[in-house]
């Protein structure tokens, strides 16, 4: 258990000694909101391929733990840019942190509930009174909003990191990400057809997820570096899209170095689904744009769940560092 403690407390530093180390001003520390995995492939690829260095940036990627999150890094100044779920970012802003979204990568929700078919839970109405596992690390608002809207009261069971409780039957329903835990359950021997899946997007909660955040002060002080970082990251995602096997191997390698269980089968699945989430589909949105409707929809959920007013307007919260004029118009 000490080991576990260490696992969760030690920060995994992946330090790249860039040859063209420039001044202190060009240094950017980035923290994704979870441990290394294909969810953040674009950042690792940008670093590995030298896209950040090409922009004159000295980038370091640090990782949070299950108990120390990326927001804390940002607050404490240990990270200049972090990635967060939209809900988490909005919640932080609501709680008074002067945080801004500078690029929105995910355009869709990957949150879903799964139950074992053998449990007889066929619809979300069946969740009433059932044990429902939910991740502790800050995106419970959307599932909570859905349950509240439908007037369903499950027994919420906070889960830290594994799907073992669900596999063993300790909980009846599990909140999972389509790109991650859903496949972990599959890779633990449960077949897709043995599960009932409930995508939150099918219930009117298609809330975008991963976006890039910084403190408003950082944005005001270093707009050019942040823009360069965002642009190189977009480049990284594009490269990962075109070279998936390379991206998967890079991620697996990073995970190995961080002693995180890893295999290509899972990371390949994750990369595929994360890239799918970045597609606009039927939404009229620029890449890296947070759509105003999504913003309004999400704060309405937060306001309902928290029973409070969201203090910021769209233009105050979303401060894109990449001008949309640089993108081709969306069809």
């Amino acid at each position: 258990m000490l080991a576990m403690k260490r696992l969760y407390t030690v920060l995994f530093m992946i330090i790249t000694c860039l040859s063209q180390t420039t001044g202190q001003d060009n240094r950017i520390v980035f923290s994704p909101h979870w441990l290394p995995q294909a969810q953040f492939a674009g950042f690792y690829v940008a670093l590995d391929q030298g896209f950040y260095a090409e922009k004159g940036l000295d980038v370091e990627i640090i990782h949070p733990s299950a108990t120390v999150n990326a927001l804390t890094f940002l607050e404490q100044g240990k990270a200049d840019i972090i990635s967060l779920f939209l809900v988490t970012g909005l919640e932080a802003a609501r709680n008074g942190l002067d945080i801004v979204n500078i690029a929105q990568f995910s355009q869709h929700s990957a949150i879903m509930f799964v139950s074992k078919k053998e449990s007889g839970i066929e619809s979300i109405e069946d969740f009433q009174g059932k044990k429902l596992g939910i991740w502790m690390s800050g995106f419970q608002e959307v599932p909570e909003a859905l349950m509240a809207e439908r007037n369903i009261q499950p027994q919420w069971v906070p889960i830290m990191s594994t799907v073992n409780m669900f596999l063993l039957g300790g909980i009846d329903i599990m909140t999972v990400m389509w790109y991650n835990e859903y496949n972990q359950i599959f890779l633990s021997g449960i077949n897709h057809d043995e599960l009932n899946s409930f995508f939150l997007s099918d219930y009117g909660y298609n809330i975008p997820e991963d976006g890039m955040y910084t403190l408003r002060q950082n944005l005001e002080e270093r707009p050019e570096e942040l823009r360069a970082f965002a642009e190189a990251t977009v480049q990284g995602w594009a490269y990962a899209t075109a070279n998936r096997e390379y991206a998967v191997e890079l991620v697996v390698d990073l995970m190995r170095k961080a002693n995180i269980p890893s295999n290509k089968a899972h990371q390949r699945w994750m990369l595929g689904k994360v890239l799918e989430m970045q597609q606009p589909r039927d939404k009229e949105v620029y890449p890296t744009q947070l759509h105003p409707d999504d913003f309004r929809h999400t704060i309405s959920i937060i306001e309902r769940v928290r029973n409070t007013r969201f203090p910021l307007g769209y233009d105050q919260f979303f401060k894109p560092v990449i001008p949309f004029t640089e993108y081709q118009p969306q069809p």
Partner: peptide, 15 residues
């Protein structure tokens, strides 16, 4: 920083 209540070794047998 070490919230053992939610670790598998604790939470699963507890529940």
């Amino acid at each position: 920083n070490y919230n053992y209540f939610y670790m598998d070794w604790y939470q699963i047998p507890a529940i």
